[in-house]
Design a binder for these strands. Structure first.
Lengths: 123, 123
DNA sequence: CTGTATCCATGATGATACTG
DNA sequence: CAGTATCATCATGGATACAG
């Protein structure tokens, strides 16, 4: 006979909220966009400058997502030529500590690899 | 003339470590697997039970990734039939507070949607 | 400058069947 | 029970061209 299935102690836990946030930060760029906005508000072109390898298409899509969910605001500047400025909302700012915590773990992960003299496992 | 590009205050920040961790938690399941292992060690089948919709193929792949990066250990139990038990390493456990922080933001996000009487934006 | 529209490549998943 | 093999599908992202 096999072992009995042990009931998980994973209660009606934050599994759902977690998934919602990760759905937002998912992908290669969303978290970098949030991080770029952690300081002053920034314009579309400035964000492209911060993240040299992001395509306009993807940056546009991410910003729209974050805006839709109330994490980022968009303000049109009536300059010549016209430009747009993005900023984190208070709600969006609450992501920052969490992102920081993750980054902290990331540093330890990398340090571990180096300590072991191992190569970072490829993608 | 357009506005000058403002230099980003996004310093040589944890952008890299962050990406490394997110690469691990990326996808629909990795973070749930980590969360399921937050309590007692669990067997393959128990994990499938915790995450009813995950396929064996994907669960296997995620566990292998986490094991490769030193976040999870795998122990074979010489039972009949044989089974395997997975657990978080100390390094893996360091993900927990970060995940908690993210979940906290997630709860506020969802609460916000409800307060506004809005539907959660579809994926 | 600020996006949007197309087309294409890649990666992550689900379903199902099968092995030890 | 604990996986692995194969096939099909969908989401994400890059490149490029084009529009307001």
């Amino acid at each position: 006979m096999g072992l009995p299935i042990r009931k998980s102690k994973v209660e009606p836990r934050p599994t759902c909220p977690l998934s919602e946030v990760l759905r937002l930060l998912r992908g290669a760029w969303a978290h970098n966009v949030v991080w770029s906005l952690s300081g002053e508000p920034r314009r579309f072109g400035e964000l492209r400058h911060d993240l040299p390898k992001i395509s306009a298409r993807v940056l546009s899509a991410r910003l729209r997502e974050l805006e839709t969910r109330g994490l980022v605001t968009r303000r049109v500047l009536h300059t010549s030529p016209p430009s747009a400025e993005y900023a984190l909302t208070p709600l969006g700012r609450e992501l920052l500590p969490a992102i920081d915590a993750l980054a902290s773990v990331g540093r330890k992960l990398i340090a571990e690899w180096e300590t072991l003299g191992q190569q970072r496992p490829a993608g």
